[in-house]
Design a protein around this nucleic acid. Structure first.
Lengths: 155, 155
DNA sequence: GAGCTAAACTTGAGATCGCAAGGATCATAG
DNA sequence: CTATGATCCTTGCGATCTCAAGTTTAGCTC
């Protein structure tokens, strides 16, 4: 124990969680930006679309799955549309909703960025753990509130 | 397996890590803001100072321990100084450094905010785990890069 | 002690994101 | 069919934070 008097395991765990997040996302972001000109959030959204049926989603569903605000998604998609990675599409049955559809360029972009990014995640995150520990960690993290929003899609 | 074809445990764990961070910090922030008018980072810095020897730290050390940029710390401390929670102090042996010192009001603020914030952390984070799992999780997270910067202070 | 490099800090500019408010559309109830 | 409330999306505004550049001071070397 050093500076922190209180070393309740929960607090220690939370502190490490916070710091690790800051450190890892900073590094991941910077690499992703350098190699592919994408934000972590950009990539996140692109991948959601990539695996969505017909590669399209309502903006609100994107927001919920990546845990951003609706307004955050609007502006993020503005950027991706500007790059031609994503297009808007109207919804016939409901004029309020606009779909975001991955373009061919978008598909290509995901496939280009995927390998290096997954390798980075492996290096900065996964590599610290044995296979068994990875599953264990995934299970533990899965209990946290909203930890698996992106693992379920609304129709 | 739902939308994500690739369910390598590492990727699942990382995704959950990301989402859980977003969800929990959003909620913690909002409560902290509502009750005590503090950002999560504000609180973080205040606590670092609270446990530092003489309740003072060089700005650069604060930056390293909470994983913010030097410029981030400058502006964050501007705010805390404006509220009277922190003061500047010059360093006799090195004119380049400015210390940040917790004021009495700052001490009080930390002690006021502490209980509710720790309770929030317990509720949103710790409560999902058994005591044994908490230690396990802390250990696992501790292996991540820079996860315990705040557990060691430079002189 | 003059010059050089490195460190600590600040500042300006820009990016990202949330909140609050507003507009459009749908769905339901009367 | 109209009124009400909810949902989807966008926009204005502000807050936070980073990066790059600049200033001042230390510490070294020659």
């Amino acid at each position: 124990m050093t500076t922190q008097e209180v070393s309740e395991p929960t607090q220690v765990a939370w502190l490490r969680f916070l710091r690790a997040h800051a450190a890892i996302t900073r590094e991941l972001s910077s690499r992703l930006e350098a190699l592919h000109e994408l934000t972590l959030s950009d990539y996140d959204v692109l991948v959601q679309l990539y695996f969505a049926p017909e590669r399209r989603m309502r903006r609100i569903d994107i927001a919920r799955s990546v845990l951003l605000t609706a307004s955050g998604i609007t502006r993020l998609l503005d950027g991706l549309e500007g790059c031609g990675l994503v297009e808007k599409a109207r919804c016939d049955s409901d004029a309020r909703v606009t779909y975001a559809v991955l373009t061919d360029a978008g598909v290509k972009k995901v496939e280009e960025a995927r390998d290096s990014h997954l390798a980075d995640i492996e290096e900065l995150f996964g590599a610290q753990f044995e296979p068994k520990e990875r599953r264990q960690l995934a299970e533990l993290l899965g209990r946290l509130p909203l930890a698996h929003t992106s693992e379920a899609c609304s129709p």
